[in-house]
């Protein structure tokens, strides 16, 4: 099995039979896009909701807004058709909890919201998601059928 790893603030596009994985998603969000007709898959591992929060944005894959756009562009370059794309969204946990609210700790939730907003703007349907909670997740995107394996420590394994 040819498994391509996507790091933090990173994105990759592959064609079947190659597969994509990103390990240990916490408050970050993994966005898996899939073109089932052309069997092209893309995965981005974003860290922050919006590129507006930072002045010099060198890495587009770091943010939900710019990351999703860049991923779609790269998939189209590889031969995907935008109208075929569907999305799966995973991650956005709150790993630590405190009594007092802290915006940085709510970042997981904000990452998920920003991701959904951007996907909606681009008219890409979210077919499934596994978000929130207080635990980490590893995901594997199968390019043959677009299925997404979600692994955790102590919170089970599932395919979404």
């Amino acid at each position: 099995m040819d498994m391509i790893k996507v790091g933090m603030a990173d994105l990759k596009v592959v064609k079947a039979p190659k597969m994509l994985t990103t390990l240990g998603l916490g408050s970050c969000v993994g966005i898996a896009l899939y073109d089932k007709i052309n069997k092209i898959a893309g995965l981005v591992h974003i860290m922050l909701p919006s590129s507006d929060e930072i002045k010099k944005n060198q890495n587009k894959a770091k943010f939900a807004d710019t990351g999703v756009i860049l991923l779609v562009e790269n998939m189209i370059k590889e031969g995907a058709d935008k109208t075929n794309l569907t999305a799966k969204v995973v991650g956005g946990s709150q790993m630590f909890s405190f009594k007092k609210n802290n915006s940085i700790l709510k970042i997981g939730e904000r990452n998920v919201l920003a991701t959904k907003k951007k996907l909606q703007e681009l008219n890409i349907q979210i077919v499934s998601e596994d978000t929130g909670g207080n635990y980490g997740r590893t995901i594997q995107l199968n390019t043959k059928d677009g299925s997404l394996l979600v692994k955790t420590i102590g919170h089970g394994t599932k395919i979404i």
């Binding site: 933090m8 603030a9 390990l23 240990g24 998603l25 916490g26 408050s27 970050c28 860290m47 922050l48 929060e53 930072i54 060198q58 890495n59 770091k62 946990s93 790993m95 630590f96 909890s97 405190f98 009594k99 940085i104 700790l105 970042i107 207080n134 635990y135 980490g136 997740r137 590893t138 420590i153």
Partner: peptide
Amino acid sequence: VPSLAIDMAGAILSVPAIQFGLISD
């Protein structure tokens, strides 16, 4: 008061990485 988590390193480290992500890479 401290908050403790036992989980995947990547998931736990995402918290400081995100925090520093606003400042630099």
